[in-house]
Amino acid sequence: MLLTPEEWTAVRLSLQVAFWATLWSLPPAILIGWVLARFEFPGKGIFDGIVHLPLVLPKVVVGYLLLIVLGNRGYLGQYLHEWFGISLIFSTAGATVAAAVVSFPLTVNAIRLAIGGIDKGIETAARTLGASKLDAFFSVTLPLMMPGVLSGCLISLASALGEFGATITFVSNVEGQTRTIPLAIYSATHMPDGDAMALRLTVVSVVLALGSLMLAEMADKRIRVALGQI
């Protein structure tokens, strides 16, 4: 099935946004997932709540909050704009930020669950063998939580590919910049002859979703073999 150049742009943009959103949110998600799974500290409940806020807030609200904070006249955005000349609105970078923020709590949760499933005693064993906390994390915990990291990545990719509300509110619907597949389908349904385009992009969405699920399945199996779990 052939796509029009406009549709190809939307597909490429979607993949690009989802990939970078996942990659950038992964390290902080691992860190926060670890902290939430392994440490007790005052204010943990509030911290946990803030991390999960994008999950429970309407996506449009998340987008609007991003606009207030990171928009060209936002609390942080004005400095980004003045000092570094970075403008997130109407840009692919902005769409990536929106996708990352929305998918972040899902990634954190997947990783947190994976860490929770690792026997804490195995980290203690590493510590008694001379590994510092950080050393034990990188040499034992991190490799053992790879299945969780993988499923976190998959959830993050899927959620970023489907992101709509926060993106359209924060960075609008600009072709070639922020018009990802969901936004393109939305636009198509507003055009008099857009049905065929919407359908084609829907098929692409289904193929992408199935493809990434199968890829993740294969990767999961390989990781578990490497970890000696199968």
């Binding site: 026997d119 005693g121 195995i122 203690t124 064993a125 590493a126 510590r127 008694t128 063998l129 001379g130 590994a131 510092s132 050393d135 034992v140 490799p143 053992l144 490497a226 970890l227 000696g228 779990q229």
Partner: peptide, 17 residues
């Protein structure tokens, strides 16, 4: 990690990876 005690646990706790 600075106590240099060798700890043998009831369950071996080997590193599976």
């Amino acid at each position: 990690e600075q106590r240099a005690v060798g700890y043998v646990f009831q369950d071996a706790r080997l590193f599976p990876h």
